[in-house]
């Protein structure tokens, strides 16, 4: 396999990068870690005329807390940057864990959180937990910047609402009341496996009572989806194993899996039940984990 010819740009400022994207239009692609773009180009799944690298935009790798705003994750932070971030480890260990269990160490050293989001692969591991924690993405284009809740960002497999000249620069996690959150990935081996099913859960517990809950399912629909009926079933109730099973069954019903070489739709649906139940239990009992 070989890389087809392309023009390569590594702009030193965001406006310059957006300008290049505007100039080339659909013929350009952004490259960050390259763990997705390069294999796709080698396999001839895409053939951009130009690659615009974000490598000189080093401000995009920071992860920090800003008063009144929340945690800001630069889009070029690698999976290992997320996994090892003291700020995230303190507030949302669940995100660190999700990043830590992705792919393999080589990919985690190169791949970025922005790439994981932008590629919009249904089985991506970071979007479910970020959606569960209410993440907002900041998009910067030639005409200025805007923010979009991550939950509304995806429009289909490989498709998002980002515009041609826009670059995803930040993922913002606003302060929030969740007492626990987790992401559980079910893959077919312990490392280097894509999720057959991924379930993220975030809960607000008050004693035994679940005051609020978010359940986000990955790999079982064209985009990461909220299991809203299942969430409603849980809210305001005293949590029991029986209730969690009911919630799991409800979430399974809300999923829309397909059959592929990793698993049948039937299997995936049942795994939604199992992992919704397990994820909720973990978030309820162990906090952000």
């Amino acid at each position: 396999m070989y890389l087809p010819d392309f023009e390569y740009y590594a702009p030193s400022s965001l406006p310059e990068a957006c300008g290049l994207l505007a100039q080339f239009g659909a013929r350009a692609k952004v490259i960050a870690g390259g763990t997705d773009a390069l294999p796709k180009m080698k396999q001839e799944l895409m053939a951009p005329e130009a690659l615009v690298s974000l490598k000189n935009l080093s401000q995009l790798t920071n992860i920090f807390y800003e008063q009144e705003k929340g945690i800001i994750i630069g889009s070029r932070a690698t999976h290992n940057d997320l996994a090892n971030s003291p700020v995230l480890q303190e507030k949302y260990l669940s995100i660190c864990e999700a990043a830590h269990h992705m792919a393999n160490n080589q990919v985690r050293n190169r791949g970025t959180v922005g790439g994981n989001i932008i590629n919009a692969v249904p089985s991506a591991d970071l979007p479910p937990i970020l959606i569960a924690l209410g993440a907002i993405v900041k998009l910067v284009g030639t005409g200025g910047e805007r923010t979009v809740p991550l939950e509304e960002f995806f429009s289909g497999p490989g498709k998002t609402v980002i515009k041609q000249d826009e670059i995803l620069t930040e993922i913002i996690l606003p302060d929030q009341p969740f007492t626990g959150s987790t992401y559980m990935k079910f893959g077919l081996r312990r490392s280097g496996a894509l999720a057959v099913v991924g379930v993220a859960a975030a809960v607000v517990m008050d004693g035994d009572i679940c005051k609020d809950a978010r359940i986000v399912l990955g790999a079982v629909a064209p985009v990461p989806i909220r299991a809203k009926k299942a969430e409603e079933l849980l809210k305001g109730k005293s949590v029991t194993d029986g209730l969690l099973e009911e919630v799991g069954v409800c979430a399974a019903g809300e999923s829309k899996p397909i059959s592929d070489i990793r698993g049948s739709a039937e299997y995936r649906r049942d795994m939604v039940r199992v992992f919704t139940k397990r994820a909720l239990k973990k978030a309820i009992q162990e906090g952000h984990c």
Partner: peptide, 15 residues
């Protein structure tokens, strides 16, 4: 369908 080491799943050290 799986002529690669991503989808032809050899066990890893963790397995």
């Amino acid at each position: 369908l799986n002529p690669n080491l991503g989808e032809y799943r050899l066990p890893t050290a963790l397995d």
